[in-house]
């Protein structure tokens, strides 16, 4: 671990300080920022510190740790692979956060929980652990961990169904099932499951179609006779670069989505967006009306025109699109 930021040059010359208390405060600082440290690491940091430049005996270290404990620090000795480690679990300067802030953290945890971003979720939890007191962490865990985050929106039968498909996603094996199309006909499908989400009041299975390498979203309720194949998911969805132009007010207001690159071209913006879900992107672009034009690829332009025509078909008398 790096040393906490110490700017020794900023200290006033001839500043009278209590050297012993200074060392103790430095140990407290190290524990605040590292949370877990071995006594030998601690001594290395003390030795390298320009204002300390020495190590501590076990007795002195015990004395300092005990002082911190009397002050209110919850410091435990933990066993880190055969080595004694000092772990700062809680300290008096970590104040509880307001209830509504806690709710927002829960909302973020729930959102992360819906996506297979395990490392990001884990890192987020580690960050939160450093920021808020342990009892509030427990409260978040109780509300989020081992639960399906959108549970409050679902019936008991839906929860069971969601849990079943969530297990399939964790297993990461190819699924084969019959999928009921909107017209009632059934087709056989093969999908590599990625995640289960709740979208448009429907449980949705997001996965890769191994034949096309495209991401698909399927209504879980339309899935019948589902079974897992012994082979594991291997393919990756192919990402498409969609380029679109934004004009008028939206061009001056636009805040790019993650991963988008934006180039200003006169009064308009040229945006490049790489996605494995082109349909979802196009739906978002429809919202910008005639101030947005998809430039490439051609397939996306065609799809955009198809969606516009589909909407116009509903609005206009029959066959009038052809007459436009």
């Amino acid at each position: 671990m790096e040393l906490p930021v110490f700017d020794v040059t900023q200290l006033e010359e001839g500043l009278r300080i209590n050297v012993s208390a200074y060392r103790l405060l430095f140990i407290y600082l190290l524990l605040c920022q590292a949370q877990t440290l071995s006594p030998s690491d601690l001594n290395t940091h003390l030795l390298n510190h320009p204002m300390v430049q020495r190590t501590l005996t076990v007795e002195t270290l015990n004395n300092y740790i005990h002082t911190l404990q009397v002050f209110g620090c919850d410091i435990h000795n933990t066993d880190g692979h055969g080595q004694i480690m000092l772990h700062l679990k809680e300290h008096p300067l970590k104040y509880p956060i307001p209830k509504d802030h806690l709710n927002i953290i829960q909302l973020i945890c729930a959102q992360f929980f819906q996506h297979p971003l395990a490392s990001t979720y884990h890192h987020f939890l580690m960050l939160i652990r450093r920021i808020i007191p342990f009892n509030q962490i427990q409260e978040i865990y109780q509300n989020v961990s081992n639960k399906i985050p959108f549970e409050h929106q679902l019936s008991t039968a839906d929860i069971q169904l969601a849990e079943r498909f969530q297990r399939y996603c964790i297993d990461g094996q190819v699924l084969v099932f019959d999928y009921e199309m909107p017209d009632g006909k059934s087709i056989s499908k093969m999908v590599e499951p990625l995640e289960i989400t709740y979208h448009r009041k429907r449980l949705t299975l997001v996965g890769n179609d191994p034949k096309t390498n495209k991401k698909v979203r399927l209504d879980v309720e339309r899935i019948h006779h589902c079974r897992q194949l012994p082979n594991r998911s291997r393919s990756q969805a192919v990402k498409t670069m969609v380029t679109f132009k934004l004009m008028g007010r939206i061009a001056s207001n636009y805040r790019p989505y993650p991963g988008e690159t934006v180039v200003q071209k006169g009064d308009s913006l040229l945006v490049k967006h790489k996605t494995d879900e082109v349909d979802q992107l196009l739906k978002r672009l429809l919202r910008y009306g005639a101030t947005c034009q998809v430039l490439s690829p051609n397939s996306a332009r065609k799809e955009m025109l198809y969606m516009i025509d589909r909407m116009l078909n509903g609005l206009l008398p029959h066959n009038s699109i052809e007459s436009l």
Partner: peptide, 12 residues
């Protein structure tokens, strides 16, 4: 556990 540092405690 042994005695604690009084001055450091006051500063804390």
């Amino acid at each position: 556990h042994n005695s604690f540092n009084q001055t450091a405690y006051r500063i804390l």
